[in-house]
Amino acid sequence: MSRTNTAETSGGSLKGSLLRAGGHTNVQLGVICLLILAVMTALRPQMFLSSYNFESMAFFMPELGILSVAMMIAMLTGGIDLSIIGVANLAGITAGTVFGYLAGEAGAGSLGVAPVILGVGLGLLIGVLAGLLNGLLISGLKITPILATLGTGQVFIGLCLVLTGGPAIVGFPPAWNWLGNGKIAAIPVPLVLFVVLCVALSLLLSRTSFGLRLKMIGTNPKAAIYTGIERGRMIMWSYMLTGGLAAMAGILLSARTNAAKSDYGASYLLQAVLIAVLGGTNPAGGKGNVLGVALAVISLTLLSSGFQMMRVSNHLIDFVWGAFLIAVIAINSFRGRKAR
């Protein structure tokens, strides 16, 4: 499966292989973004180009974007993480439960900044621990990532149900909600966070030995072991990173909606897989870049926002997402065959 992308990590003709691997897809994605933008603008000029529309997209896109980047990182080693939604909700719900406990009678709205920092830390810790569990199951017990994360995802969602008893936790402290609804100099906070995360992760994956080793495990596991890469430990780190990012997305989701529930964002799972694959990530491992995923999430956010304006039913949007995924698979497969 990885025969086609070994050229990428060899580093020989770096520029050429970059163009072939990430650059080419990214140029295509950029063009797709502009195309969607142009078409939607032509169809619904007043509504689509309004600052309100862009602002609302900037608020809800980062959650999905972070989840997609998290999925991409899991896919780099040839794995997948189906527990990200469970992790995200568990992070939000744990923080919400702690806030409720701390505030007592007064309600979570009375809490200041310090408890919120504690809550964020706790949420991220939950995410990293959840990722550690996934990593242990996958690299320690040698369970297939699909099944391991399917199982842990159930457990995490189950724990959400146990913590909440079913209904949503409503009411978070104002400082927490600022993370999802606030602005820094007219730019939505979630967007700022997303951009910062993207830049940091992009540097981590392309400029550090950590990123290179991660990709090598996905490209050729056996060769990676022979070059002295500790596969188990790398996989553990990658799932911990994925878990932490999923928790971050969960924090943003609960901050934006001022609520947390065990089944929020359930449809994000498929979308995160789709966006990761669309962004040039190879689910078999070894190939993936943050910019591609970011471009993919932007183009799909534009697409679904445009559809919503044209009053296309939500269900048909699901249909389009699924069809898009299959089309991308088909195109990638044809291109892969030609390259061989």
Binding site: L270, H315, L316, I317, D318, F319, L325, I326
Partner: peptide, 13 residues
């Protein structure tokens, strides 16, 4: 995952 989304979308839509 893709075909599931397509089929559910078609049925509901």
């Amino acid at each position: 995952l893709g075909t599931a989304s397509v089929v559910r979308g078609l049925v509901l839509g």
